[in-house]
Design a protein around this nucleic acid. Structure first.
Lengths: 130, 130
DNA sequence: ATAAACTATAAAGTATACTTGAAGGTCAAG
DNA sequence: CTTGACCTTCAAGTATACTTTATAGTTTAT
């Protein structure tokens, strides 16, 4: 498929997809060139980009995504590094989930405060001075 | 306390604290100026900055933090806006938690794949060709 | 055949969140 | 009373992740 079709299917736009390719997030599994130099994308590219979107929304940088999604080249050392990296990231995500939950209960408290404040104002607004 | 003390207590560095002030994240509850133009911070500033760090780690931008942490000025309309904003953000955080969990199980699968691959390589590495 | 709608590259621009650097004022110790 | 460690402001620089712009080639529809 051509770039605008992929863009449509993934919710990204063409320049972003080209940018991802330039940054090394796409490889021969996802894209090749036709005779006219146009990019031709595989179905796999759709899944791949949707996955990138999800992982990125979870807070990964493009470089990190590149590391975890890159094609397995059969190198044992690189494999071990990837494993180590993934473990580190899993822990990091646990931490972020905790932070998210803490912040959420924080916001809940703030929300309650503001609601209480609003209720009080709502009932006292038109009262005369004491 | 002076800026470097606050910096030490919060794990931020002075320029960052000044930057936050410039961006409107600190107000008279947290800083004032002494005669020599040096900033003097209150104890409240410590808590405030630690809170900023947490909320930011949870994915909020500085502008958003500014909105949710700004001093209550008693304006009913602004209060309503803040409440609406907080509710929106709570939902967003729910979504981010889900994304985080999805990505986490994704990474777990990838980790398992790589571990299996490594184990296979580990046992077959020294075998002669069939 | 020609206009509209794509495609390509490269380079510059944008937003966010800082960090670094320059140039100078203040303060405590020896 | 000067040295060193602070403090100040303002401007410029950095990294990330795009987006926009400029220029040009290709395809599709009429």
């Amino acid at each position: 498929m051509k770039i605008h079709v992929l863009a449509q299917k993934t919710g990204l736009n063409p320049p972003t997809i080209r940018y991802y390719e330039k940054e090394g997030l796409l490889d021969r599994r996802h894209v090749e060139r036709r005779d006219n130099n146009y990019r031709e994308y595989t179905e796999e590219a759709v899944e791949h980009l949707l996955l990138i979107k999800r992982v990125q929304a979870a807070g990964f940088t493009i470089r990190e995504i590149k590391v975890i999604l890159k094609e397995e080249d059969g190198n044992k050392l690189e494999l071990s590094r990837a494993i180590e990296f993934l473990r580190k990231k899993m822990k990091e995500m646990d931490r972020r989930k905790r932070e998210l939950e803490e912040s959420q209960s924080l916001l809940a408290r703030m929300l309650n405060n503001k609601l209480a404040l609003l209720a009080k104002k709502g009932t006292s607004e038109n009262k005369p001075l004491p």
